[in-house]
């Protein structure tokens, strides 16, 4: 830890803690799951940056969506994202959540994930190597430092639009709105 780091710790311990204690809940489909184990085990060891996988969204602060997102899994992704405590960050892994990737013409997959939940960072590639995940995380740190990782704030302020998008593609959702919806009141 150099002197610069120490100064930052004293200036804003909460922000620093958010940077260096990213507890991750993974949502993996297809090839996404292949890239996660190397990154958290002995070869690359994500734990040295304080990044560990946790079992439930309640304990997490980072949501990594790895692989394509089908209609069925989107429902679970939204549910999981809403159950995470704020502040929370989302990173998508691979080309599929960005633009559909190799499933760009599938009737059953989501082409643009950021239409349904806010995504703070996207790591492109098919599939990106574990190094790319670490690059993505360092970018996320920069964003947290500059207060630009504000996906959860965007989700709150534009909740009506997000909810409308979600209901448009999924039909009726089983759970009540997380925040009050402005259009109806």
């Amino acid at each position: 830890m150099d002197r610069n780091q120490l100064k930052k710790w004293f200036q804003n311990p909460v922000k620093m803690a958010h940077k260096y204690s990213l507890h991750v809940v993974y949502f993996c489909t297809g090839c996404g799951i292949i890239e996660i184990p190397p990154s958290i085990t002995a070869r690359w060891d994500a734990e040295r940056f304080g990044i560990i996988p946790v079992a439930t969204p309640r304990q997490a602060s980072l949501f990594i969506i790895a692989g394509y997102v089908s209609l069925k899994t989107l429902r679970s992704i939204i549910r999981t994202y809403e159950q995470m405590p704020e502040p929370k960050f989302t990173v998508s892994l691979g080309s599929c959540p960005i633009n559909g990737g190799m499933y760009h013409d599938s009737y059953n997959t989501i082409k643009h994930l950021e239409k349904y939940i806010p995504v703070d960072g996207m790591i492109a590639g098919c599939m990106p190597r574990p190094e790319a995940i670490f690059v993505g995380v360092t970018h996320l740190w920069t964003l947290i430092d500059k207060d630009m990782a504000d996906g959860y704030k965007r989700y709150r302020s534009n909740y009506s639009a997000y909810r409308a998008n979600q209901e448009k593609i999924l039909g009726k959702l089983e759970w009540p709105p997380l925040f009050p919806i402005h259009g109806e009141e």
Binding site: P57, R75, S76, I77, R79, T80, Q83
Partner: peptide
């Protein structure tokens, strides 16, 4: 109802 059920309702 707002409870962890592995993403399902």
């Amino acid at each position: 109802d707002d409870n962890y059920a592995a993403g399902a309702a």
